[in-house]
């Protein structure tokens, strides 16, 4: 657990030293949301209707966008090799990387989302559902995305492939995430939705680190 802690701290430090990694997904999120009123309709009623879906799709794409670089730098500069030749657990390190990745993307996206919700006229009753679903749902996205990133890290054209590998697996999270916000907007109870998102998070949290570690080893030994 000490090692996990150290790994998270190191990754956060690296993210702070290289702020574009934090800012890019947030800016992307904001920009994509801005496109919809311009392309679909600036009408409040229409926007409020599609807001849950748009915000969730944008959050998903922003997470996916940041996934490509998750292991790339470490792969290129030899840091990953050093971890593989060390007696420390690769799965634990992968978990640490994913947690800090989530803190610098998904977590911040969730915090930013109320602003966007206001821009899209989402009723204020839906705010807790929006923030809650993003907080519980985006860790699953980071974990699944990291499997794709680990599988493609050694490939020259990994970036496009990640989307193809990962997007189908993102669909359950998207369905329940957007449904939570829709339910919230209608003043319906959202605890059931959040419980399901939570179940998916725990599930991926248990399995993904092992899959990521196996994929990383494979990419390095290739």
């Amino acid at each position: 657990m000490n090692f996990l802690n150290a790994a998270i701290k190191r990754e956060l430090l690296l993210a702070l030293r290289n702020r574009s990694e934090i800012i890019n997904p947030l800016a992307f999120f904001l920009l994509v949301i801005t496109l919809f009123p311009l392309a679909v309709s600036p009408e409040a009623k229409v926007l409020a209707n599609i807001a849950p879906g748009i915000i969730w799709v944008a959050a998903l794409l922003a997470t996916l966008l940041s996934m490509d670089s998750l292991f790339k730098n470490d792969y290129d500069d030899g840091s990953l090799e050093q971890i593989v030749v060390s007696p420390q657990s690769l799965a634990l390190l992968a978990l640490g990387k994913v947690i800090s990745h989530w803190l610098s993307t998904g977590f911040l996206l969730a915090l930013l989302s109320p602003v966007l919700a206001v821009m899209l006229f989402l009723p204020s009753e839906a705010m807790p559902a929006l923030v809650g679903s993003l907080l519980i749902g985006t860790p699953t996205l980071s974990l699944i995305g990291a499997i794709g990133a680990a599988l493609t890290v050694g490939l020259r054209k990994g970036g496009v492939l990640i989307s193809l590998l990962v997007l189908p697996l993102y669909i359950p999270v998207l369905i329940f995430g957007a449904a939570t916000v829709q339910a919230g907007a209608l003043n319906l109870p959202i605890s059931g939705h959040l419980a399901l998102l939570g179940a998916m998070m725990v599930f991926t949290l248990l399995l993904a680190p092992f899959a990521i570690a196996a994929a990383l080893k494979l990419s390095i030994r290739n």
Binding site: I147, G154, L155, G158, L161, A211, A214, A215, L218, R221
Partner: peptide, 28 residues
Amino acid sequence: LYLGIIALYSAFSNKASGDQAASILTLV
């Protein structure tokens, strides 16, 4: 998922690595 797996097989120039990568994705 099938398309992703097929793409992953062909993305690796080393066939053994492609096999393993695709197996991990199939299991996931």
